[in-house]
């Protein structure tokens, strides 16, 4: 669908170096990287707001590298929405349709459709200054979708929303994009957005892409130390959760965890490596989770030892060098992992 070939560009302190990737029709492609890694610049080049110093961009096999933005048919959603403040929600959504020169009846119909789809039908006469973050975000999405873009570029689309809303909107727009079959390139620094929304993820560091993989693989098999560190949340598992009594049981391949977060169905669970205790024997304690495994790998992190334990699924645990030595932890040793239910973070 769209192919980026060895793209380079330096601009205003940022630089992109030798970026190459291809996004397939209907795919949700996430570029994940810390702030300042050049993600927005990359999107703006794809949209045609800047031109690259080197490299090519191909859209459906024809080159668009130097085409002006209006000829590309690429939609753009900024983190802070960039709604036209001098126009109502209706006129914002209709902007692209008017530029196309559609008849006003057609425009009216299309605006109504999109507003309905995004649940902002009641806000059409409002000005952007009177919208909440979520409403503004829906409006900017409706506006971007109005021209039926071949590709939609999302620049931290969830970044300005508060966490509660974020999860709700994330699920909703993910579904919307899948239903419409929209091809998406989405840049973010949020690991949660990336893993939940992305079909594939590219990890970006200082203007370079350091790894491109299916979203699960990026988190489970980081290829470099940077990716491993940036991806951060070590113990992420995909599975199912259900309520049993007061507790929530999470089942993934090979493991069952007890959690307290009340989210059910297909979810992810994560546990921070420093929240896990290693014991040599099964222990009766107030912590709900106690699972048996074998030490698989020891990684010296300077003062801290990261112990990788295979319990059916692979867990990362942080302990001090001193306790590691005292407990004589070595490869292949049988240990128990203990952690509280409230430290099992479920999210969807």
């Amino acid at each position: 669908m769209i192919k980026i070939e060895s793209l380079s560009r330096s601009w205003d302190g940022f630089s992109l170096e030798d970026i190459s990737f291809e996004v397939n029709e209907g795919e949700h492609f996430v570029v994940l990287g810390p702030t300042g890694s050049g993600k927005t610049l990359l999107l703006e080049i794809i949209a045609g707001f800047h031109f690259p110093d080197k490299g090519r961009i191909l859209l459906r096999n024809s080159e668009i590298t130097l085409l002006p933005p209006k000829k590309r048919g690429i939609g753009f959603v900024y983190q802070d929405y960039m709604l036209f403040p001098n126009m109502t929600v209706r006129d914002n959504i209709a902007y692209g349709l008017r530029v196309m020169g559609l008849k006003s009846k057609m425009i009216e119909q299309k605006v109504g459709e999109l507003a309905g789809l995004l649940g902002i039908g009641g806000l059409l006469e409002r000005f952007p200054g009177k919208l909440s973050g979520g409403e503004a975000q829906r409006t900017s999405l409706a506006r971007a979708l109005s021209i039926d873009p071949d590709i939609l570029l999302l620049d931290e689309p969830m970044g300005a929303l508060d966490p509660n809303l974020r999860s709700e909107i994330r699920t909703e727009i993910s579904r919307l994009f899948k239903n419409r079959g929209t091809t998406i390139i989405h840049v973010t620094h949020s690991r949660e957005d990336a893993i939940i929304m992305g079909d594939r993820i590219a990890i970006m560091k200082n203007g370079r892409i350091v790894q491109i993989d299916d979203s699960d693989r990026v988190f489970r098999h980081p290829r470099t130390k940077f990716v491993a560190e940036f991806v951060g949340v070590k113990n992420i598992f995909k599975g199912n959760s259900k309520k049993v009594g007061d507790l929530v049981y999470f089942k993934s391949q090979g493991i069952t965890l007890v959690a307290t977060t009340h989210i059910f169905g297909e979810v992810y669970a994560s546990i921070r490596p420093e929240d896990i205790i290693i014991s040599l024997q099964r222990m009766e304690s107030s912590a709900r989770n106690c699972i048996k495994g074998k030490v698989n790998e020891l990684i010296d992190m300077g003062g801290i030892m990261r112990v990788m334990v295979d319990c059916g699924a692979l867990f990362a645990v942080n302990i001090t060098q001193a306790s590691c030595a005292e407990m004589e932890i070595s490869l292949g040793k049988e240990v128990y992992l203990i952690f509280k239910a409230q430290n099992v973070n479920l999210f969807s």
Partner: peptide, 26 residues
């Protein structure tokens, strides 16, 4: 914000049109 013009251009407007319809009124 020049990004407002970017958005307008992304929606198919020329830069001139973007300036006249967005920037000048603002």
């Amino acid at each position: 914000d020049p990004r407002l013009e970017n958005v307008a251009m992304g929606l198919g407007a020329s830069r001139t049109r973007a300036v006249i319809t967005i920037t000048v009124p603002l």
